[in-house]
Amino acid sequence: MATYSTDYLKRLLAAVERFELAFERWMETQVESDLLSSRGLFPTVHAKDGQDQRTVRELELDVAETAGAAARAVTVTGARIGVAGLGPVDPIANWSLMSAPKALFSPQDVRNTAATVRGRLGMMIDEAEAASETAVPGFAPSELHPVIWTAAAAHWTTHQYRVAVREASEALTVHWKTRLGRNDVDDTPFWQQTLSPGDPEPGRPKLAWPGEPTDKTTRSMRGGLEPLGKALNGLATGLNLTVRNVTTHTRDELSEQEGMERLAAYSYFARLLEKCEVLHASEAGEST
Score class of each variant (00 low, 15 high):
residue 249 H to V: 03
residue 34 D to V: 12
residue 93 A to D: 03
residue 20 E to L: 02
residue 197 P to V: 09
residue 95 W to R: 01
residue 75 T to S: 05
residue 54 R to P: 09
residue 220 S to W: 09
residue 192 Q to P: 05
residue 99 S to M: 13
residue 195 L to W: 05
residue 197 P to W: 10
residue 119 G to W: 08
residue 280 H to M: 10
residue 171 A to Y: 00
residue 247 T to D: 09
residue 163 V to W: 11
residue 70 A to D: 00
residue 39 R to E: 06
residue 63 V to G: 02
residue 9 L to E: 06
residue 236 A to V: 10
residue 43 P to Q: 11
residue 214 T to F: 08
residue 179 R to F: 02
residue 282 S to P: 10
residue 59 L to W: 03
residue 195 L to T: 02
residue 28 E to M: 01
residue 243 V to G: 02
residue 79 A to Q: 13
residue 94 N to E: 01
residue 49 D to I: 07
residue 20 E to Y: 01
residue 210 P to K: 07
residue 241 L to V: 11
residue 36 L to A: 13
residue 112 N to G: 12
residue 288 T to P: 03
residue 42 F to S: 13
residue 97 L to Y: 07
residue 67 A to T: 04
residue 164 A to L: 07
residue 235 L to I: 15
residue 172 L to C: 09
residue 84 A to R: 14
residue 70 A to W: 01
residue 237 T to D: 09
residue 146 P to L: 05
residue 178 T to S: 14
residue 230 K to F: 13
residue 32 E to A: 05
residue 206 K to E: 01
residue 30 Q to I: 02
residue 250 T to D: 12
residue 198 G to Y: 10
residue 236 A to T: 05
residue 272 L to H: 07
residue 117 V to D: 10
residue 98 M to V: 10
residue 179 R to Q: 05
residue 8 Y to F: 15
residue 65 E to Q: 15
residue 187 D to T: 14
residue 68 G to E: 11
residue 114 A to W: 03
residue 93 A to M: 12
residue 272 L to K: 07
residue 266 Y to F: 05
residue 240 N to R: 13
residue 166 R to P: 09
residue 268 Y to V: 11
residue 42 F to L: 15
residue 139 F to Y: 08
residue 113 T to P: 07
residue 244 R to W: 06
residue 252 D to Y: 12
residue 133 E to D: 12
residue 159 H to S: 12
residue 119 G to A: 14
residue 19 F to W: 02
residue 288 T to L: 13
residue 163 V to E: 14
residue 198 G to R: 06
residue 224 G to V: 06
residue 191 W to M: 03
residue 174 V to I: 12
residue 185 V to T: 15
residue 157 T to M: 09
residue 187 D to Q: 14
residue 54 R to D: 13
residue 256 E to D: 11
residue 193 Q to N: 12
residue 107 P to K: 03
residue 182 R to D: 10
residue 12 L to A: 01
residue 55 T to G: 14
residue 98 M to G: 11
residue 288 T to Y: 07
residue 63 V to E: 00
residue 101 P to L: 11
residue 179 R to P: 03
residue 135 A to E: 04
residue 245 N to E: 12
residue 25 R to S: 02
residue 90 D to R: 02
residue 192 Q to G: 10
residue 285 G to Q: 05
residue 144 L to I: 01
residue 173 T to A: 14
residue 276 C to R: 01
residue 173 T to I: 06
residue 31 V to R: 00
residue 135 A to H: 04
residue 26 W to E: 01
residue 169 S to E: 11
residue 158 T to K: 02
residue 37 S to C: 07
residue 75 T to M: 04
residue 80 R to V: 00
residue 202 P to N: 06
